[in-house]
Design a protein around this nucleic acid. Structure first.
Length: 651
RNA sequence: GCCCACUUAGCUCAGUGGUAGAGCAGCGCUUUCGUAAAGCGCAGGUCUGGGGUUCAAGUCCCCAAGUGGGCUCCA
């Protein structure tokens, strides 16, 4: 067994130490330079400020310095936790008398700068649990006491301190940290937010400060610039600029799709509808408003109550009499939050044979869910939306092949939209008291889903306990411009609804059997997919999806007649073409058309009119020069077709 | 739902208690123009809504709504 030496000594002796190294990687763990380890130099890999792990070390150290600054500026503020996260760090504080202001953030930054200037070492001290608790209890740090209690008994309790007496600052912390505060060269506190202690809304609300840190001021600037660019791609901004959709207070969190946006929206539906034929789906159209008995049968009234919109009629109000509230609860019709109950009604409406299975029933019905005020978000989380929803009624034995087929279909669609980076999650059984069905049933259904994924050759993460109470599910997540992750597609195993609706089919043995139901969607919510896709393509819809495929721009009024003729001829071939006859100069027309992201600009002046052509400028391919109108039409027609099958998802 | 912030013309935004502003868009006129913004003029406002303080409120205070950043939830 080698002597315990610090990684700094070990690296120095083997010549691997330079100023860039801020920690080491040792047997799978990141350790700071000054924590003695029982290792040889060969076992240590230097971690540099620019590595992902190094960045996390810098950010976590920055969080400590921020907490130090906060406690100096705001005495009485208690500290809780302050981890490094993707793109930065945060620290949660319990501050008496309310939150932090933007002014406070600037002051905190200033104070942090002072701490950094002192360049004092981060020191690691291992203490006993009792010592640690005595110390933090004397400091009044009640949250830290909870944290100490939560440390597994076989792990040592370490403290990290920095600062020069009498201004040391100490925190319970696993580490690692940079050698000294002087390593923190580029810090920016970005925003404040409320956060519940341990993420539980029954716990007290804490004040969270988000910030970010980088190895150099240049890297920080670069990051801030990228953030700014990402904001320019925000679907809410693009939606307004490109006149795709709007919102109004009269229907909070319910989008109004404007003509341009509505075109894209319905085009998306047409596209999957076109695939349904080949993939064996039947489409149905179902009601919007239902007698509450339906949702008592499905279980939604009871489990999903607080998310449902209820409506009443004058008749119901009269009948309700004095007991208005109770009457409404019993009798008020409900807007559907999901399509599945309708599909169960259809399935149960006649005797079904095993020969009909699997029966795949699709529905683009509009759904309404009352989402709490704080969670709605642009198009990504709305209260009125549609899904490319379908339910597959099948026999248990058909489940895994249905999963595989579905994944094939989803794959085709995602690739068509250019989503190749997709996080796939398999959400498995929740805690025993929160789930229906036997362990054997869960074993079977989870295995069926996993098999489907594996047969499709896709990598996925298992998220234990995150399944629905009635069955496991597969989720497909993608990131928006600001790196927030959103679930789009999903497929879920459900034996509960067929039970509740007492569904059955006649098997080849002549007996009644219970079908299994798979809930599945590729886009998920069309609204959410629209928003995420809008950010993904930056508003540059491909010609097959774009609201308009081209715009004819005249050089002057002299060419109006030719321009209108060109538009007419292209329209006659089914192409979507605008024309700009305004008195703007050509430069201005081009600018306007570019801002609206037209795939093609067709310039028309006396020269073009003479030879029956247009000057073509492609949004994606640049200047194409003069083209005959028919030649251009053929090119546009080819691009206007939805993508054919393409290679699968990459990882 | 909770914490914090924001809400001024169609859009983007100035305006820190004393006569509501700019640019773009719109409309009119002039210009007929060759690849990212022609010129001049006109119009456009219950400063999100309600209440309060004050001689005086876009500005200060309270309540509500909407939106945004988070937390939480998501059959």
């Amino acid at each position: 067994m080698p002597e315990r030496q610090t990684p700094r000594e070990l690296l120095a002796s083997s010549g691997k130490l330079d100023r860039d190294v801020i920690a080491v990687k040792y047997r799978g763990r990141t350790v700071d330079l000054h924590t003695p380890v029982a290792a040889t130099a060969a076992e240590l890999a230097p971690v540099r400020a620019t590595d992902a792990e190094g960045l996390a070390v810098i950010r976590h150290s920055t969080a400590h310095v921020m907490a130090d600054a906060v406690q100096r500026l705001f005495p009485g503020t208690k500290v809780t936790i302050g981890p490094a996260i993707e793109d930065g760090f945060y620290y949660d504080f319990d501050k008496p008398g309310g939150g932090f202001t933007d002014d406070d953030l600037r002051k905190i930054e200033q104070t942090m700068l002072d701490v950094v200037k002192k360049d004092s070492a981060f020191r690691r001290v291992v203490v006993s649990r009792d010592e640690a608790k005595k110390m933090f209890s004397a400091m009044g740090e009640t949250f830290k006491l909870e944290i100490i209690d939560a440390i597994p008994p076989d792990e040592e309790v370490s403290l990290y301190e920095h600062g020069v007496p009498p201004n040391e600052w100490v925190d319970v912390c696993e580490g690692p940290h940079v050698p000294s505060t002087g390593y923190l060269k580029a810090v920016r506190l970005t925003h404040v937010a409320g956060a519940y202690w341990r993420g539980d809304e029954r716990n007290p609300m804490l004040q969270r400060i988000y910030g970010t840190a980088f190895p150099s001021p240049e890297a920080l600037e670069e990051h801030l610039k990228l953030l700014e660019q990402a904001r320019g791609r925000d679907h809410r901004k693009l939606g307004k600029e490109l006149e795709l959709f709007m919102f109004d207070e009269v229907a909070p969190a319910m989008p109004f799709f404007l003509p341009r946006g509505a075109f894209v929206y319905t085009r998306m539906i047409d596209y999957v509808r076109g695939l349904y034929e080949r993939h064996g789906y039947d489409e149905v159209v179902t009601p919007q408003v239902f007698d509450p008995r339906l949702f008592r049968t499905s279980g939604h009234l009871g489990h999903y109550n607080e998310n449902m919109y209820r409506v009443w009629t004058e008749d119901l109000l009269a009948d309700a009499g004095d007991k208005v509230k109770e009457g409404l609860q019993q009798g008020a019709f409900a807007l559907k939050p999901m399509n599945c109950p309708s599909h169960c009604v259809i399935f149960g409406s006649k005797r079904r044979s095993y020969r009909e299975l699997p029966w795949r029933v699709a529905d683009f019905g509009r759904l309404h869910r009352y989402e709490r005020g704080g969670v709605v978000h642009g198009l990504a989380r709305v209260r009125s939306f549609a899904q490319d929803d379908a339910h597959i009624f099948c026999a248990e034995a058909q489940v895994s092949s249905e999963i595989e087929k579905f994944i094939g279909l989803l794959n085709e669609v995602y690739v068509a939209f250019g989503f190749v980076k997709v996080d796939i999650k398999l959400a498995t059984r929740p805690a025993a008291e929160k789930r229906l069905g036997t362990d054997e049933e869960w074993d079977r259904s989870e295995r069926a889903l996993a098999e489907g994924l594996e047969r499709a050759g896709l990598k996925y993460d298992v998220v234990p306990g995150e399944g629905a109470f009635y069955g496991p599910k597969i989720e497909f997540h993608v990131h928006d411009a600001l790196k927030r992750s959103w679930q789009l597609g999903t497929i879920q195993y459900d034996s509960n609804l067929p039970n509740r609706f007492d569904l059955s089919f006649v098997g080849d043995d002549g007996h009644q059997h219970r079908p299994v139901m798979l809930h599945r969607a590729i886009f998920g919510s069309l609204e959410r997919f629209f928003g995420v896709y809008l950010e993904h393509c930056g508003g540059n819809f491909p010609a097959w999806l774009a609201p308009k495929q081209a715009i004819v721009l005249t050089v002057s009024e002299k060419s109006d007649a030719h321009a209108l003729k060109v538009q007419e001829r292209l329209r006659a071939r089914g192409l979507r073409v605008d024309v700009d006859l305004s008195s703007d100069k050509l430069g201005a027309k081009i600018r306007n058309a570019r801002l609206l992201r037209y795939p093609y600009l067709l310039v028309v002046g006396p020269k073009e009119a003479e030879i029956d052509s247009v000057g073509v400028r492609s949004r994606d391919a640049g200047e194409l020069g003069a083209m005959k109108v028919d030649e251009l039409a053929a090119r546009l027609e080819a691009e206007a077709r939805p993508p054919a099958r393409m290679p699968g998802l990459a990882h």
